[in-house]
């Protein structure tokens, strides 16, 4: 299984997924190159979140292929733990561990999962907390932090695993408007550092600014995609046009 950095880091081909009778993904294909930032937008219930949850095997798929660095995800013999060391994820509801401090949240997985040395892990965890601009909050419990701060800890927690790609599942949707900006800034910093990011988002202005490529999904298919400028100015499909006219 050889994979070169010139191949797509994440490659979806004709992915089908249904929950019972409900078809959520109806043949989705997309490629993400190393260092790419792609945004998936679309109306609620169009399968965006399901789509990225399939990439780290939180959801399984019925048909099609998902390759992450050449590794097939749609495979019963898949080593999920190895896959998830490469693919980080940040959730809408942060999902920090409430019984652990910010620092512990960030350094726990490197120590327990990657078997890193505790002191080294703590050092890098402190550096990451600084990177997401939360210096001084190391010993705070999640319950003592604002939504935006919790979400930045969650981003640091994901980064601590040194993933090759990070999935962002509507990470600003649960935030107070005044804290959305700080989280988006953190993601922007990551993108500028060259981290491969796949985002599901409703923040159109942000998508336009940070994305290399935008995918628009509706009813389980990708209706249209393209670089942000073309996508927002010259949408071709009527469904995209309608969606954009409602949002913008």
């Amino acid at each position: 299984m050889s994979w070169n950095t010139s191949d797509p880091m994440v490659s979806l081909k004709d992915v089908h997924k249904s929950f019972g009778d409900l078809k959520v993904l109806n043949g989705v294909s997309l490629d993400v190159m190393k260092g790419d930032v792609i945004c998936i937008i679309g109306p609620s219930g169009s399968g965006k979140s399901t789509l990225i949850r399939c990439i780290n095997a939180l959801n399984d798929i019925q048909q099609g292929s998902i390759l992450v660095e050449g590794q097939e995800v749609n495979d019963p013999k898949l080593n999920k733990l190895e896959l998830r060391k490469k693919v980080g994820m940040v959730f809408q509801q942060y999902n920090l561990f409430p019984h652990k401090t910010a620092l512990q949240n960030v350094m726990m997985a490197p120590v327990r999962v990657l078997k890193q040395d505790k002191d080294a892990a703590e050092k890098s965890a402190r550096a990451l907390i600084k990177k997401v601009r939360l210096e001084g909050k190391e010993d705070a419990y999640p319950g003592e932090l604002s939504g935006g701060q919790q979400q930045r800890v969650a981003i640091a927690r994901s980064l601590a695993m040194q993933p090759d790609v990070i999935l962002f599942d509507e990470v600003t949707a649960a935030l107070d408007p005044e804290t959305v900006g700080e989280v988006l800034q953190t993601i922007k910093d990551l993108a500028e550092d060259g981290m491969t990011c796949i985002l599901v988002t409703h923040e159109m202005a942000f998508a336009r600014e940070v994305a290399d490529h935008i995918y628009f999904t509706d009813r389980g298919v990708i209706v249209e995609h393209g670089p942000p400028d073309t996508f927002f100015k010259n949408a071709q499909d009527p469904r995209t046009k309608e969606f954009l006219s409602q949002i913008l």
Binding site: N95, F97, P98, A109, R112
Partner: peptide
Amino acid sequence: PSGQWEAAESLAYTRMQTLWLIILPQ
């Protein structure tokens, strides 16, 4: 909340680790 399991899963914790380090203490 199921989010606790999902967060642990996506950080590559094994099920046993998830149970002992994250779920049961809570």
